[in-house]
Design a protein around this nucleic acid. Sequence first.
DNA 1: ACAAAGTTGACTAGATTTATAGAGTAAAAT
DNA 2: ATTTTACTCTATAAATCTAGTCAACTTTGT
Lengths: 160, 160
Amino acid sequence: MLTKKAKYGLKAMVHLAGVRPGETALVADIAASNQIPKKFLDAILGELRNAGFVHSKKGKGGGYMLARPPSDIGVGNIVRALDGPLAPIQCASKTVYRRCDDCTDETRCAVRLVMLRAREAIAEVLDKTSLEQMRELGESGDGVRSLVGGKAARQAMDMA
Amino acid sequence: MLTKKAKYGLKAMVHLAGVRPGETALVADIAASNQIPKKFLDAILGELRNAGFVHSKKGKGGGYMLARPPSDIGVGNIVRALDGPLAPIQCASKTVYRRCDDCTDETRCAVRLVMLRAREAIAEVLDKTSLEQMRELGESGDGVRSLVGGKAARQAMDMA
DNA sequence: ACAAAGTTGACTAGATTTATAGAGTAAAAT
DNA sequence: ATTTTACTCTATAAATCTAGTCAACTTTGT
Ligand code: FES
Ligand code: FES
C-alpha cells in the first residue's frame, strides 16, 4: 500500500510539472490546490529536494521547481524516494534488497518468487511512466479504457 | 509494501498446501519450520479461519488444514484477507474502494489513474497464481528465469 | 546598511497502526 | 481428569500521519 507521503508527493510533482518551466510554485499553493496538510508537504518536498528531484528557493518569489524536465522523471523513482522499494517485500527488491531472516533458502522461497513477479509487474508500469505522461493521463481523464484490454485483464479488474 | 502479517500468512498457507489432504498441521510446527513468531501466527491463522480459507480443530490430533484444495485458492485473495486491497491506493481498488477526501475529480486524478494500472498489473500476477502454483514455484526453485522475458522486463528488473 | 516580510527548513509532539510477547481460557481426545 | 491443542485478552515497542513552534535564508523597501 502506497503511503500518504508518496501519494501527496506524487500529487505535488504533478502540480510542479504543470507550472511553466523556470517558474516556481509555493508550498502553500500546492497544499491548498491539492488539499494536502501543509506541514506534511513541507517535509515531503524536503525529501524530494534531498533526493534531487526538485530545487527550492527561499524568500519572496521563492518556492519549488522540478530539477529536470518531467519527461525525464520516472514515476517509479519518485515512489522509491518516498516509500522505498517498489517490491512488495524487501527480499524481492533490486534497489534496496535485504535478506529475510526467516526463510533459510531464498532461492526456493515461494513467497519471494511470487513477489518477484509482482515487483516486475509494478515496475513495468511505474518505471515506464514518466511524470509528464502521468500528468497527461489526468488531463485527458480517460483512465483505464486505453489499457491492456482483453478478457483476462477485465476479469482481474473486477476483483482487485 | 506487504506487511509481515501477509508474508507470514502466505508462508503458512504454502506450508498447509504441503501436508497430505485430510491431515492437519500444528501452529507450533508451522511457526518453527518457517521461523514465524508463534503468537503472531496464532492471530493470523485465526483471521484466515474467519475468512474461510482454513479450518481448525482443537485438542490432540488437532491443528489447521486448508478449507479448499490449493488449486482453488488464489494468492491475491489470501493477501486481500490479511493486508486489504491489492491496489496501492484505496481509490484504485474494486473490492474495497474508498473515495479520496482530497482529490476533487476522481476521474482526472493522475495519481489514481496511474495506480489503477499498477493495481491491474499486480492483480494480473496475484490473481492468476493459485496457492498450488505458488508452492510449486518454491519446489522447483527456478524463480524469474521462466518469466515474461524481453529487454523491457530485464531493464525494469534492474531498478525495482 | 538595515529592517521587514515572505518563504523554506528543522525539531518536537500527539494520535493511530503494526509487530511481538505473555498469561490465561476453552474445547477436544484419551 | 489430564493432556493437548486452538483461542482470547492485554500490553509494549516501533512506524506512520499530522500539527505546532521556531529557526534560517532571500528578497524588497528605506
Ligand atoms: S526470502 Fe523473503 S519471504 Fe522468503
Ligand atoms: S482520487 Fe485517490 S489519489 Fe486522487
